[in-house]
């Protein structure tokens, strides 16, 4: 072995792995899969009403030039129940909210709306998660900010908590 620096190579590799491992331990892992559709135009879809007495949701319904929220929820999803009051607050602040119910039964949706209120203008039923896939959505609940230009400008993953309300209002203002 006439190349002494080469002998230090294994140590360098171990040090690198160690550094990477320490990074992995210290920095909390970001498990969220974010949509790559943010900044893109809202894809075309048309969904049937999720339950009796509500209107279905098509992408064209959201193309009136107003910024709005698109909430993805399900009656079987527990965080969705937790975020219901905050959606109500947003609605009271004058925000138009459309919704998509994922893999749900009409009767369950009705019960859910009955119990937790209905802040939604329209609710489409996405039984096969096809629209979720189009949106790059990975779970429920999620909330999208749709700008007045018809583009998705923000994706909020997880339930909306109290502290998220002003943030979402700001995003909506930006999306004008």
């Amino acid at each position: 072995m006439t190349r002494p620096w080469l002998l230090w190579l294994p140590l360098a590799v171990i040090a690198f792995i160690g550094g990477l491992a320490i990074y992995g331990l210290l920095v909390p892992k970001d498990e969220l899969v974010r949509s790559a559709m943010v900044g893109q135009k809202l894809p075309q879809f048309a969904l049937a009403p999720a339950t009796a007495g509500v209107q279905g949701l098509a992408s064209s319904d959201m193309a009136d030039g107003k910024p709005r929220l698109l909430n993805i929820f399900a009656s079987w999803c527990i965080p969705c129940k937790a975020e219901a009051p905050h959606l109500e607050t947003l609605k009271k602040a004058g925000v138009e909210i459309d919704a998509i119910a994922v893999r749900d039964r009409p009767e369950d949706v009705a019960v859910f709306l009955d119990q937790f209120g209905n802040p939604f203008r329209r609710i489409g039923a996405d039984n096969e998660m096809a629209v979720q896939l189009m949106l790059g959505s990975s779970g429920v609940p999620e909330t999208y900010v749709i700008g007045s230009d018809g583009k998705i400008s923000y994706q909020h993953i997880g339930d909306i908590r109290e502290e998220h309300v002003p943030m979402l209002l700001e995003k909506l203002a930006e999306a004008k």
Binding site: M1, L7, W8, P10, L11, I14, A15, G18, I22, L25
Partner: peptide, 19 residues
């Protein structure tokens, strides 16, 4: 991780110096 880095690190230092 600490055990691994200490043991293999020390061993590779020894390796580089001795081999």
């Amino acid at each position: 991780l600490t055990l691994m880095l200490v043991y293999t690190g020390a061993a590779f230092v020894l390796f580089a110096l001795r081999i």
